[in-house]
Design a protein around this nucleic acid. Structure first.
Lengths: 200, 200
DNA sequence: AAAACATTGACCAAAGTGGTCATTTTTTGT
DNA sequence: ACAAAAAATGACCACTTTGGTCAATGTTTT
């Protein structure tokens, strides 16, 4: 099957599952959006559930790329967090729905798929943030700053910044080259604030 | 009508609208959850749309309390932001669904109610954050820090912290007294980071 | 005990559900 | 050019759910 059609189907299905949750997601809406016939969809997937589970597995595979791509030898927290952000941005560009779909999975509570979700997400949930921030050198931090709190502030700032940029991109419909410069400003503020004088 | 029953209906309706969006929200589910009969619901409200619009107006009224309660003479950003957080926390305690419902309104795209939403939300959207951070004294900030970025970092941190605490409360089912101490730690970190030495 | 008001849930036509399959269209091998 | 195989279609199915109604029943007030 043409890869473009595959993506059309996957995206349409994800979009509908995100919007409506498993139970209320309509296969009719999916085929309309993907511009294929009802019959085709049920040729590719034996049931709605089958399709849903495929999408979950697909999502897990994509998300796991993050862990693989992280350079664990980079021990500076600001470098590491920028790295993760960069990887996530690339994923977002390639698969714009994948994070929203993941979020919808965590909120899903339909009995029919609940256990399957937990099972398939087990791997990426188990470690979560911990794996991403393994082997970080905290010694550069000012001593009066709790590393865990610093990490939280960084994470929240990163997430907030990302959300803001995505909103901008979605509304203005043009990717900003200044994006990374802008992030660097935030990075500088926090770095100067959190690190001991003279470090790095 | 008994106030307790009113709240049961409002909460059940909001819950269902949050979960399913306007179109797919089921009035049957609402009456089941609120433990009233179908007939009663349509006695109180002439239609699903009528109910929805009532909930929006109700939400707007509640949210607007925030603006009223802010002490505009407090010009320190950290005080102000803690104030807003405190007000929001109280609203969250009294009306646990109101912020989720507000969020769901912003994501709603059903044609039948889209224009009504925009109209009713116009007031609280127009100014948004601006009104909350009016008349702040930025002179205490270190000169190498852009006030707008500082404000963003603060906002994101506050939101992240709140989310974390709500998650904790929801899962552990007991409100933490240490909550404000914990927030004060974050506040200290950011204050020491952002303010000139010796300020405040 | 009568009148006024509140609440109920069986009921309705209409719309939507996940899934099927005989039929048509497209692709393939020769 | 043609037939066989593969892929795609959408009308159709039985079933569920939808928002909304209203005659009947319960509850209060006068």
């Amino acid at each position: 099957m043409k890869i473009e059609k595959q993506e059309r189907i996957i995206n349409a299905a994800m979009k509908e599952f995100i919007k409506s949750g498993y139970d209320k997601a309509s296969t009719n809406e999916m085929v309309k959006d993907a511009q294929i016939s009802k019959g085709s969809l049920f040729n590719y997937f034996s049931s709605k559930k089958d399709l849903y589970l495929f999408l979950i597995q697909n999502t897990v595979n994509i998300i796991e790329e993050i862990y693989v791509e992280i350079d664990m030898t980079e021990r500076d927290i600001f470098e590491r967090i920028s790295q993760v952000g960069f990887i996530k941005l690339n994923i977002q560009k390639k698969y714009p729905l994948v994070f929203d779909f993941l979020k919808s999975l965590l909120e899903e509570d339909a009995q029919e798929v609940k256990s399957d979700i937990n099972q398939l997400l087990a791997n990426i949930q188990r470690d979560g943030m911990k794996r991403i921030y393994e082997n970080i050198d905290w010694s550069k931090l000012r001593e009066d700053i709790d590393p865990e709190k610093a990490m939280n502030i960084l994470n929240w700032t990163m997430a907030g910044f990302a959300e803001l940029q995505i909103a901008k991109i979605k509304s203005f419909e043009h990717v900003r080259v200044e994006l990374f410069n802008e992030w660097d400003r935030y990075r500088e503020i926090l770095k100067r604030s959190f690190y001991k004088n003279g470090e790095e």
